[in-house]
Design a protein around this nucleic acid. Structure first.
Lengths: 336, 336
DNA sequence: TTGTAAGCGTTATCAT
DNA sequence: ATGATAACGCTTACAA
């Protein structure tokens, strides 16, 4: 990889590197002619400043790190698109990393981002993460961090989340209002903030309509088909099986529907299903899946804006961190 | 962002930075005690080498650039997962960029990757790209490039692709064998390699079964619902409308099904649909969508391996570039 | 075995 | 207005 440097320009033009540097960035007053010559020559030989050298010098990279559990998940890939729009417009780059829902990978990613001198980190926690020392440490070093979607209470910073409580409430209420009497909930990892909030919403809806809360109907579950299949087996084996299931994520909804179909359960007659998903294809399902959608793109954008503001802020005044809760949308696709 | 450097270790231990450096990487023979002391102290104060300094010094970054049209697309996000497995295991990092199907964004991404000193580039071309000077230039500078999925003939390098011809052939053949007589094809951007190959496969199947080829049944089309909706309107308005559609991508299939449903077309009775998609949820559709799946993960892995081999190769012997064609799998989900 | 110094590309400080 | 120099963190000849 041969490269054009400031030195090459200086040599060719019989100038010092500092003059060239100044001409290039027009910072110091420099003779207009010199400036012109330099700029033209730079253009001609297609000079590009080396961001690595800059990073080393300035100890920052004009890029932010983004850690998501998984890219192959519509919610997160849409959130990333939101993030990229913002950071791109503000002259930054986004480095995307996946934790694959693994705590260990998350820690490694965090460390790597730190050593890469990203200017800030956007993160949505892995399902396995309970200990957040790696993030606290990072924050203590002065790295701005913003959570989106999945956060930890133990870190004081901006958080951008969906109104999971309300979303779960609406989903459950919808099922109640459609006449369902025994509504199960398949939830994700118990440690996640979203899981707790959604369970609370589910409970609140049952309470409001004075339905009994049966904790055996709440199943924490991994994403895989086998796990969900097991859980559904348990639910169906119950002497008083549910007539509806509220599933807490894209993956869970898909696995749930698959398992139910495999077991030849009539959806929605025997069991109605509502999801908390960002599946843009749910309307094509048989039957179409009602679902609570999160504003993924907007969540990414909001989080990115908050992070960049943190990064670029001048004032030394103490920061008041915000938790921004974005509304979810209940999309009813099947009168079940 | 306060940071621990080699200098800090040297100072604390009354050594020179070079000694510390050597101890840390165990390269030169160094007294075992010194080594031990250094390693322990480094561990203690949690020293992490600065990859930026290393990049600057070695003019390489131990990272590769990945440019895909869009992350919010199961095929590409799965391919990225394949890529990451490989590069991670071989001590590299993947920087992921999206062209959003835009030629301009692709050029910018390529330039940015170059200035970032990535060690190589994996790319799947944008739908808009016809001119590939930006890549040729990059290759001329010595940057290893490997194409996956969408390539250009004008660049001589490794290419890892799906057997698009065969996939399209199988899809079309399936429709013919199920008794369809007039099969339309909704294709993506005309400039893409995958588009041409799939059209060829489609044609070959029609030829084999001595069906007439009617070019008005081949529609190049953008991904959006409106565009596909228009195209379907045209097809249906035909005096002799098709009784089957072979769609060339995830997005096209989804838009196509949506449009058909909006128009109350009976699928598959009136029109059967087969896709070329990596949708893991197609079996939940009404009716379940038959589809040709590409080995996304494997494609990513293979491409990444080839790229890393190029990056790490010692020999100066001329390289023989390969084009690796991976088999697709026809998944029949509805007897239409 | 260890230290000194130069260099990777750039900018900021201090001379001139 | 321009040039010389040091510095960012690290590695590696070359010296000792």
């Amino acid at each position: 990889m041969e490269t054009v440097t400031i030195k090459d320009i200086a040599k060719a033009l019989n100038l010092s590197t500092s003059t060239v540097s100044r001409a290039l960035r027009g910072s110091y007053e420099i003779s207009p002619e010199t400036k012109k010559v330099v700029l033209e020559y730079a253009e001609k030989i297609n000079y590009r400043p080396n961001p690595i050298a800059l990073s080393l010098k300035e100890n920052r990279s004009r890029s932010i790190g983004v850690i998501v559990p998984e890219i192959d998940n519509p919610f997160f890939s849409q959130a990333i698109n939101g993030i990229e729009t913002i950071v791109y417009n503000r002259g930054y780059h986004a480095l995307i990393f996946q934790s694959y829902e693994s705590y260990q990978r998350e820690v490694i990613n965090v460390q790597h981002l730190a050593s890469r001198r990203v200017d800030g980190v956007l993160i949505s926690l892995s399902g396995q993460t309970t200990d957040i020392d790696h993030l606290r440490e990072l924050q203590d070093k002065g790295m701005p961090i913003v959570f989106f979607d999945r956060f930890s209470d133990e870190i004081n910073t901006h958080k951008v989340i969906a109104d999971n409580f309300d979303g779960a409430f609406k989903a459950t209420e919808h099922l109640i209002k459609s006449g369902r009497r025994r509504i199960a909930h398949i939830a994700a990892s118990a440690s996640l903030s979203i899981t707790k909030e959604r369970i609370n919403g589910y409970r609140a809806a049952l309470n409001k309509y004075q339905r009994p809360i049966d904790d055996t109907l709440i199943k924490y579950c991994g994403y895989s088909l086998v796990e969900v299949d097991n859980v559904i087996g348990e639910l169906l084996a119950d002497s008083n099986p549910p007539d509806a299931i509220f599933t807490a994520s894209d993956r869970l909804a898909v696995s749930c529907l698959t398992a139910l179909k495999n077991k030849h359960v009539d959806i929605p007659k025997q069991i109605a299903v509502v999801g908390f998903t960002n599946l843009k294809v749910a309307h094509l399902f048989d039957p179409p899946l009602s679902t609570v959608m999160q504003p993924a793109m907007e969540m990414g954008q909001t989080a990115a804006e908050l992070l960049l503001d943190l990064i670029e802020r001048k004032s030394k005044a103490p920061i008041t961190y915000q938790t921004i809760k974005l509304p979810t949308e209940m999309i009813i696709r099947e009168s079940c």
